[in-house]
Amino acid sequence: MSIHSINGCIGCGECVKSCPTDVLRLDPHTGKAVIKYVADCQICHLCRLYCPVDAIIISAEKTIPVVVSWG
């Protein structure tokens, strides 16, 4: 399911900034990153690579139907 989970987030916001498609946001209450717009995840792993505590686990599956040129 694209970005799968975030464990051990320290709330630095690196992933929010590094996500090209604006999938992640900091929760205003906990201050930690939440997977807010998962349908837009392009599964590029930049958030994981930028995370200083390597908190992000990503799965290869997209959450919405995938349109390709042939099937």
């Binding site: 392009q42 290869a60 599956e61 997209k62």
Partner: peptide, 13 residues
């Protein structure tokens, strides 16, 4: 997993 850019590129990123 056609949508998975990272996996499709096999570690290039």
């Amino acid at each position: 997993n056609a949508a998975a850019c990272f996996d499709g590129w096999h570690g290039m990123f």
